[in-house]
Design a protein around this nucleic acid. Structure first.
Lengths: 197, 197
DNA sequence: CCCTTAAGTCAACAAGCGATTACATGGGAA
DNA sequence: TTCCCATGTAATCGCTTGTTGACTTAAGGG
């Protein structure tokens, strides 16, 4: 019984609980609509402890959300299947009660306070690494199209809640998306052959 | 001198001025962060008039923003160039001080109040018409990919403010986007030839 | 045992929000 | 002119927000 029935007062465990529930609330509501009181209530913790342990609401947001914003889970795998893996990940339905850093990002980016912080982290921890991981020409443009297609799908599916209405539609999206993403990752150098005006 | 130097007290003109500035403020800040006081101040109008003429903040939002949410400007043109026109419209830089319904949509969708209203309007006034305008199979899936790629680009360029850093990158994006969109609009029936796992 | 220190609680603050109310005022109709 | 209602104004209400400081309680070493 190491952790079982641990000490009634454990600062580390308390901070962890705050962090965990903060992730969920920030993800569900976005930064501005999330209130410190709701986070504290859900974590069964006094509101003032948020300021004690994280300084401010924004401090908690940086610690709980901004620091985990990354594409590394995708970039760790082989580059050949990157497109397919990203496509599948967001096309497939997942439990709605989880924490998704990018849903949180998209719901919080309108905020005056959280927005700038998110921006810097997004560029440094997600966009630039992806662009660097690619080969060939126009990596920045290809990374942009890939990430923005992803972002748009997250917006429609997870934020708007407009998931595909039929399995047929879902599989059609998956198939087209796999082709598009693989094309973008590979960058098959057929850049500007569209020609005319 | 019909409208010139019109009556000092003109309810219609006052409501129009409120509507106009409401669009700008809602677009810049999103629904939640936009305050009725700022809208009223910018329109040189007393705050209480917003409630007089539009009932509530949400009423103003519906009147000024939700009602103009539409893809008709694009759908009116020929279907053959729909993809290219949508691509160009958002790839090209535009003045930042204007009102863009979709930027407003994306900045406001996190709101508890405005979100549901926006959702219904988006589906009815934008997604469904686009899907209906297309020919061939999997129109819903193709419309989804097209609109979500658009939405993602709007998010990155206009909301995150991460426009392409070089002309080269911008033109590369435009070229790829034109091909992708045209492919999606035409729907060249090469749906599921990616095959096994 | 006591006493220091960390951990947690409580009440209150100042600021900002949307909305309401009662009041002032202007302009056209009678 | 006189009256009256649409138009505009000012003050304020009720509420929620993040944050703060003083207080109380638990745990462990002397």
């Amino acid at each position: 019984m190491a952790t079982r029935n641990g000490p009634k007062r454990d600062a580390g465990e308390t901070a962890d609980r705050i962090r965990m529930h903060a992730r969920l609330v920030f993800c569900e509501k976005g930064y501005d609509l999330a209130t410190t009181r709701e986070i504290a209530d859900r974590a069964h913790v006094n509101v003032a402890l948020i300021n004690r342990y994280f300084g401010s609401k924004l401090g908690l947001f940086e610690d709980a959300v901004v620091s985990v914003l990354s594409l590394e889970p995708f970039l760790e795998g082989p580059l050949e299947t990157l497109g397919v893996r990203m496509a599948d990940f967001y096309v497939d339905a997942r439990p709605k009660d989880g924490f998704d850093p990018f849903v949180t990002l998209l719901r919080s980016v309108a905020s005056d306070e959280a927005g700038p912080v998110l921006l810097k982290a997004l560029k440094r921890q997600a966009l630039d690494p992806l662009s660097k991981a690619m080969n060939g020409t126009d990596t920045a443009a290809r990374a942009t199209l890939l990430t923005t297609q992803m972002a748009g799908l997250i917006v429609k599916f997870r934020i708007f809640g407009l998931e595909p209405e039929t399995d047929n539609e879902r599989e059609a999206i998956r198939a087209m998306l796999r082709r598009y993403f693989t094309l973008l990752v590979d960058g098959d150098s057929q850049k500007d052959q569209s020609g005319g005006p």
